[in-house]
Nucleic acid binder design. Structure first.
Lengths: 223, 223
DNA sequence: ACCTGAACACCGTTCAAGT
DNA sequence: ACCTGAACACCGTTCAAGT
């Protein structure tokens, strides 16, 4: 720790896992998942691709660290220990907003690099359940249900962002999907046809929270 | 259509999208996601990689078709129109079991190639909601909540299978994860420590259904 | 201990050439 | 119309060589 500090004083441009991950997040945010290659990363860091492997095991490790960075920030920001139901909503919304700001995080959370960030979210949700009036034996299931719902939304948002990188305007995107839904055969897709209008003018964030509340309501029936 | 039938009579080994997708599913099932390359696929079909591009736009298209194949089968098998709550459980369990039998499907459902299969699942869930006593305006949200939960579980199961391809025995796998959880710092991860035992001897499939029931219970509170 | 960058093995995809 | 397979552009990763 001491030697590390000393080194930082001597060479501010020295390579380190933190600096590598930080730069990786920058690339992911500004240029998207496809732009993060070891060559591009090395170029930004003014070094060769091999140098990165001294600090990072492989690409999965790098993506995991980048995801942990973003989610870790969310989880510490959200510690404000209010009433448990509100705290659960805060955790969920924190993850939702982080994915909104960093679409690549959604893809990672539903992939192999997301596991340690997921554990963090799971702990954040579960801790609150203990303060709630839920029988012990239902804790694991309740936390899993909330987590899986959040991860499902995360994956969907990531897929949407990946498929429509140009449609930055939310309502434009929803409109295009709704129009596609309306053009489907109503005999084969009666439900999708019916809810196309609701899709067009729903609020993603609001509906996400409504889903959380639905699960919380279900958890409330466990006594 | 007629010409296609005639051709099939003359050359049973002729290339077709169906045969390509069928072979792709075979590779995915037996050798895993990593083994599906255009070269490996072409080799099995005794042709060159370029030939595949005549029938399939690209790899995403191929994976989408493979996913549709598996999920489509599930959705048609599950049409037995019982009481709506039971039908929703049947759809959910059908998807769950399909992912269990074809782990790669889970990864696709939470990725870009899964969108059309997801639409199928969404329709299957939503249709049942109309038969339930739920206000129209809540249909979209309720179906989305169920869908997102299912997709979250799908992604997690896929990630687990991908990370532990050797641990075919479910209880061995759960045991190893539970042990890891128990070794985490109890001060930082009080909840995870507490539920590690529940993880060890829970039944994935049963808990999955319990989550569905939780959401259904929540939906039941909407009047 | 840490960095450099050429080289390896391997992709998805294209395309001129065939039938 | 459909197939062939070499070639292209591009990866992640390794490793001998440097400092």
């Amino acid at each position: 720790m001491a030697s590390k500090t000393r080194r930082n004083e001597r060479r501010t441009d020295a390579l380190s896992k933190e600096r590598i991950v930080e730069t990786a997040v920058e690339i992911l945010d500004t240029e998207g998942e496809g732009a993060l290659t070891f060559r591009a990363l090395a170029a930004r860091l003014a070094t060769g691709p091999g140098a990165i492997y001294w600090h990072v095991a492989n690409k999965n490790d790098l993506l995991a660290a980048a995801t942990d960075e973003v989610i870790g920030r969310v989880m510490t920001e959200v510690v404000g220990s209010a009433e448990p139901q509100r705290a659960i909503r805060a955790v969920a919304l924190g993850v939702f907003d982080a994915i909104d700001a960093h679409p690549w995080v959604g893809a990672q959370l539903s992939g192999p690099a997301g596991q340690s960030a997921i554990l963090e979210i799971f702990e954040g949700l579960g801790k609150q359940l203990r303060a709630l009036d839920v029988p012990q034996r239902a804790h694991f299931g309740a936390a899993s249900a909330l987590l899986n719902y959040i991860l499902g939304v995360a994956g969907q948002n990531a897929a949407n962002a990946r498929m429509n990188p140009h449609l930055t305007d939310r309502s434009d995107f929803l409109d295009s999907v709704a129009t596609r839904w309306e053009q489907l055969d109503p005999a084969r897709y009666p439900f999708v046809n019916q809810v196309a209008a609701q899709l067009r003018d729903h609020d993603d964030r609001e509906q996400f929270l409504a889903g959380i509340d639905l699960i919380l309501a279900g958890i409330g029936t466990l006594h």
